[in-house]
Amino acid sequence: MQRALSIDPGKCTGCLQCELACSFEHTGLFNPSRSVIRVFTFHEEGRFVPYTCTQCAEAWCLQACPVDAIAINAATGAKEINEATCVGCKVCTIACPFGTVNYSQATGKVVKCDLCGGDPQCAEACPTQAITFVDADQTGLERMRHWAVKTDAAAHA
């Protein structure tokens, strides 16, 4: 059974431990600006919403890549960037309707959530269980996965 990140914004306190853990895992530095999970703050409602790639079935980024630099990790189901192959053209960053593939000025490549190879550090670091790593069909992420994707509605057989 593959697992997925489950996000419960109601439990998020905005501590940003997830952003720190993510950036450390991927860059070796505690630098939230290089985290691929981002906590949105809604001051008006006093709410915090962690936001990252849902590893959507449509895989818009993978489909759009002109050089075959994005592949599905068979073990985790994550769509992963192959840095050695990525040329930095950024087509995936406009193709992804969730905005969760982004260009990194620092590396000249794109970056996205790779589920840390099956042990996501954001979930590990979250002190309130707002982010957990659970069986994929329990996440309720399906609603989000299908939220923005109407162009392609008929495209999967």
């Binding site: 981002r38 950024k90 960053t93 406009i94 193709a95 992804c96 309707p97 969730f98 905005g99 969760t100 593939v101 982004n102 260009y103 000025q105 939220w147 923005a148 994707v149 109407k150 162009t151």
Partner: peptide
């Protein structure tokens, strides 16, 4: 602006 520009597509496409 390079951060999360894909959402612009998501918003147009979903007509939300």
């Amino acid at each position: 602006h390079t951060e999360k520009v894909g959402i612009l597509r998501g918003l147009i496409q979903s007509r939300r």
